[in-house]
């Protein structure tokens, strides 16, 4: 399968097979007025199978969101057809405005323009808790 190479844009590589569509949704790539390729189940020596997303536009990608949904995915930034940076995205220590606290008693449910901040409290079990009320985030599906 051929997908045109990118001149200026972003390639999200090493996505766990099956997770690309979820990332596509959360990164709101559907709202982007640019070519976006979502490639599923690509053969990978390291992973067996993987997904890839190619975005043909020099956009800012929310790395925390990628690290939360699929830690270990790599983000390659392409400029003039060359890879100018390549980064494996770890699970972020904090998430800002990625998750929404579901606790109706939390101050974030009423306070004007308060950022929704979650802290990683258990890396092994991928548990994030609201900074304000410590309610556990719903696990990412």
């Amino acid at each position: 399968m051929n997908v045109d190479s990118i001149q200026n844009g972003v390639v999200i590589d090493h996505i766990t097979a099956g997770r690309a569509m979820r990332l596509y949704e959360l990164l709101q790539l559907d709202k982007l007025d640019a070519s976006v390729a979502l490639i599923k189940n690509v053969s990978s020596k390291r992973m067996g199978k993987k997904d890839i997303i190619k975005v043909d536009a020099a956009i800012d990608i929310d790395l925390d969101l990628i690290g939360y949904v699929d830690p270990g995915a790599t983000v390659n930034v392409i400029r003039s057809g060359e890879i100018v940076s390549k980064e494996s995205i770890p699970m972020p220590e904090t998430l800002t405005n990625v998750l929404v606290c579901k606790n109706p008693r939390c101050i974030s449910s009423t306070e004007q323009e308060l950022p929704q901040i979650f802290k990683l409290t258990d890396r092994e079990n991928k548990i994030y808790r609201c900074l304000y009320c410590e309610t556990k985030a719903e696990p990412e599906r």
Binding site: N103, R105, C106, I107, S108, S109, T110, E111, L114, C130, L131, Y132, C133, E134, T135
Partner: peptide
């Protein structure tokens, strides 16, 4: 003292 959890932190 506030009824909302996290109000003191804010």
């Amino acid at each position: 003292r506030h009824p909302k959890e996290g109000a003191a932190l804010v």
